[in-house]
Each structure stands twice: as structure tokens, then as C-alpha cells.
Amino acid sequence: MLNQKQAVLLERPAKTNDVLPSAPVKIQDTDTKTVGQVTVDKPIMTTRNVDVYYDDKQAIRNVSIDIAYNEVLSMIGPSGCGKSTFLRCLNRMNDTIESARVTGSIELEGHDIYDKKTDVVTLRARVGMVFQKPNPFPKSVYENVAYGPRIHGLARNQSELDEIVETSLRRAGLWDEVKDRLREPGTGLSGGQQQRLCIARCIAVNPDVILMDEPCSALDPIATARIEELIDELRQNYSIVIVTHSMQQAARVSQRTAYFHLGDLIEVGETSIIFTNPQHKLTEDYLTGRFG
């Protein structure tokens, strides 16, 4: 699966290693307070000592964490803890906020994504994003899914494009519901369908990593359950980083969980371990409901 995916990578995959040698990056162990399993064996993304500032206010302090292939990493923590901010660093969506400044290193398969030579467009095609509120474009269902392949030139002709659209919709579990209304506006679907449409739109460009920013917070429990199933299926092909305010959701969908607190990454670990046996006092307090 991995090989097939890499064949359609947008950036010249063969040459990637010539541009920047991937040297192993050491965590500067100055004041990393994070406990637990920060690194993994073969990471797809690594972040080291990431700080984020809005003007002079520091929103993220010294966060280092790896993201593995084919895993769902969930990020939890009280609101305002910086988990969304951190997520948005991973595909440089923070670039759109003028006052935001990111330091440290974030690498995707060994390439610094904040490097001048990295085209942010290519990066975002490889690291897709699904937002809190479903935001389908006010165009037809088909156009929503076809948009990404179009701008990235992924289809040579109409039939290839049709195929990509169908595959993506199938993978997002939406095909059967919308196959007869591909030409109708995507904004006319129900909330849960809209969010799955956004996921289909995202996987249509075949990214390596999918970032999800509280994807179920605007949905009812039934729609949420469908999305959670979907996330589990998608893990076969993609790495997924999901920010959620629901601990149960994190427990249900993720293999690893990271706990953020006031801009610090407090603890990372296998989900089952974190929820049963947290090592850090703050994690424990949060999980047991002392604050939220």
C-alpha cells in the first residue's frame, strides 16, 4: 500500500533524498518535560523543540513528538492548551496568521517543512487537513472532491478524475449515499455527510498525513460514530493526527495519545497505557476530571 501511494506522490519522490540529507535530529534535552514515548522507530513526521508565538505571546513551548506511519495519534487537553495550534503547524496553516511565528524543526520524511525550499502547496497536499466545522465548497459534491486532483494535476483525463472521485468517496464511506447526487451542491448534505465529504476531498489528493481538528465537535453522536469508524479504516493507508476534546473519542480511535497543558506537551504514550496508567500528575488530574 505504501509503495502504491508513493508512486503518486506529488513531489518528485525519487529525488527527495538528494535535496536534503535526512540527518537524525536529536532532541535538545535542555528542558523537555514530556514524559512517555515521544519517539517512534520509523516516523513519517518528526517535530523537535517547536515553539509557537503569537506576537510576543508564546502559545506552544518546546514540543517534540514523532508521528508514525499508519497510526492515529490523538491530541487531548483542556481548551486553550495549544493542541490546535500545534496541529496547524504540521501543514503550515499557521502561515495564514500574520502574527504567528514558529521555531524549532518539523520534518516530513526527513525534509524540514519550514525550509525555504519547501513549497507550502506541495506540503499541504501531502499533509491534508479536516476542520472542526465541515466546510465543503459551495459547489457540487463532485467538484468538491475533484478540486484537489485538479489543482495538483493528479488526473490525466476525465475518466481518471471520475475514478479518483469515486474511490475517494468510497473510502470516505459516502459513495452509496451521494452517487446519485454528485451534481448537487455539497452544502446541501447533512452535517455528518458534509464532514465525510471533506474527508473524501482530503484523501482525493492521496496525502501521507491527515490532520483532523476536532472533526466531530459539530456533529451528532450517530454521525460521530460513523466518522470514528472511518478514521479507523483510513489508518490502513494514512497517518492521522486528531485533535479532540473528547477523551472517549481519543480512547476509541487512537493508538497513541498526547496530552497538552497550557502550551506544554506533558505526556505521550500508547493510548491504552495513558488512559489506565498516566505517569504525569497533570495527565492524571485531567483524565480523572479534576479540570477540563
Binding site: L10, T122, I151, G153
Partner: peptide, 9 residues
């Protein structure tokens, strides 16, 4: 392999 192009033709 036209996908080796950086941008669309």
C-alpha cells in the same frame, strides 16, 4: 511521467 513537474503544465 508528467507528475514529476513541479506545477501544472
Amino acid at each position: 511521467e508528467f507528475r514529476t513537474l513541479h506545477s501544472l503544465p
